[in-house]
Design a protein around this nucleic acid. Sequence first.
DNA 1: TACAAACACGAAAACGTTTGCGCAAATTAT
DNA 2: ATAATTTGCGCAAACGTTTTCGTGTTTGTA
Lengths: 340, 340
Amino acid sequence: MKPRITLKKIAREFGVSISTVSKALKDSHEISEETRGKIKAFADYYHYKPNNLALQLRNQKTSVIGVIVPEIVHHFFSTVINGIEKYATEKGYNVMVCLSNESYEKEVSNMSVLTNGSVDGLIVSIARETQQNQNFKHFEAIINDDFPLVLFDRINDDIECDKVIIDDIGGAFKATNHLIEIGSKRIALLTTQDFITVGSLRKKGYIKSLNKNKISVDESLIYKIDDNLDLYEQIKKVFAVKNPPDAILAVNEIYAAIALKIAKESGLKIPEDIAIIGFTSGLISEYTDPPLTCVEQHGFLMGKQVAELLINRIENTAPSEFQKVVISPNLKIRKSTLDN
Amino acid sequence: MKPRITLKKIAREFGVSISTVSKALKDSHEISEETRGKIKAFADYYHYKPNNLALQLRNQKTSVIGVIVPEIVHHFFSTVINGIEKYATEKGYNVMVCLSNESYEKEVSNMSVLTNGSVDGLIVSIARETQQNQNFKHFEAIINDDFPLVLFDRINDDIECDKVIIDDIGGAFKATNHLIEIGSKRIALLTTQDFITVGSLRKKGYIKSLNKNKISVDESLIYKIDDNLDLYEQIKKVFAVKNPPDAILAVNEIYAAIALKIAKESGLKIPEDIAIIGFTSGLISEYTDPPLTCVEQHGFLMGKQVAELLINRIENTAPSEFQKVVISPNLKIRKSTLDN
DNA sequence: TACAAACACGAAAACGTTTGCGCAAATTAT
DNA sequence: ATAATTTGCGCAAACGTTTTCGTGTTTGTA
């Protein structure tokens, strides 16, 4: 790479001081029209642009916000990032994305690197491994320094900072209510292992709805899927019982799509024989046959919200108490539950 | 945010010079065991971490690579980013992601900001608007400065830099050959408008296969879809002709899924009445009914490749001539073309 | 006792920028 | 002609770090 043109070089060119050049380029009245003109022409010609690092160091401000997500090849997370980027750009910030890959160690190292002065604030969705360990010391460290931090979706209540979450309980509650309204009696739940927060919250919403509708909770209808095993085989078991369910609520899109596929292979009609709802994060639900009714998560809105909280925190326009914003998902009804 | 602890503050604390502190923290033998010990203990206690900006400024190296993509809520692009991030992390680089949102102006401003010293090199996939304008001056500017740059997927041959592309012609060629092999005679092509490079390349591969198989090109079978209009309505026309096709090659997943849906609504059997292939970038193809045969694009591999070229360029371990790496897609055969 | 060597540390430059202040020279006012 | 003001520019500090080169003190050796 060619050496960049700097104030110093321009100054040397004209035999003036660096400050004269700096002021000239900023159209300062301190510098004569003549000097200003020739310096600006020269700078233009050589495409002078102030070095950002120097500016950031001097201003003690990077105008960059760091984002750490467990993965990026994931419709929900990329949608959130999109929202973050949108809002950040509007406010003059750039976005630096890092991936934890669900690994505790990578999360720690990413946080350590980013808080070294590279960014003005941090947005994090906690890695699965960290959630399992329940080890949040790396967060305490930056919170002690009052480093601006916002958690979203995968959060932990013990970490004192701003947070944005989806109302998972409410979403599952709505979905289950809908299934009951259309006449479902035996609603199976396809959820994750317990340590996945969203899975357990959605289970709560499911149970809350059953309770409200005076339906007893049948533990044999609750399936905890392990993402490391074969999904297809695990979900098959739902149908291989004497008294199979007449509805399924799946905590994500993939589980729902696979359940749909197996149901059809078993000769079941959807939604007549079995109704299916998933939590969606992508486009799959729209293109299955029939399309899947789903709980929509508003990732873009979430991203904007997260970015807004963070930037307010950075710019000290936020209230001193930490905020917890809850975003309500909505139920998108398609033909997997209502065919009309 | 609390003011960060710096070398200067530590120095003041012990009444020594900044350089002494710096050396002590680096375990320099120049500093006595005693001084070293107390300084390190103090620094540890206050979680001293060198300020990255200062280091970057001094070393004239940021170890950050900038990535500009048209969008991020897109399976292909996020997969490429994932590959980039993976390789970059291995090599000690961080990734700064910016979105052009298909806008020329945003692409220009992103590039301008990132090349101000914030990153050591740039990876770009060109925005649609830029492709339409054919205005590449912003690239010339940074190429004149020998700024490390790699283009991928959405490239332009006039820009002199390293490039990584998918063999779109080959992919479409393979797919069309496959359709012909299974007996298709009238193969429709669902492509994009001409200025979208990938669309026109895939069209070339389609025509190349027809030629090789001595099938004349029927222009009435080629549909140029406009993404700004209603996709469903446009694709419907494929089926609303006297002599409809017996196969469809779609240049992306969505077109293919919609075509599949309409075909089924029209009472056609797949693949018996009509076979369908799409270029895939996401998970949709896997969950349609029947699952779609598709051309897989290896985004992750592409990302690693792109990052490798860039980092070699940055670290001057690259050959001086620019390279153009072509990644061959493969055909994933599913039941939308072969049902056995 | 004198001199060399080892030891322990500091000064200063460099990365590139901005900005308050000072200081001549030129211009205006008295 | 002298004083006051304006004009045009440079100095230097500051952001935080690393590193080369000096320098003074202590220790070791002849």
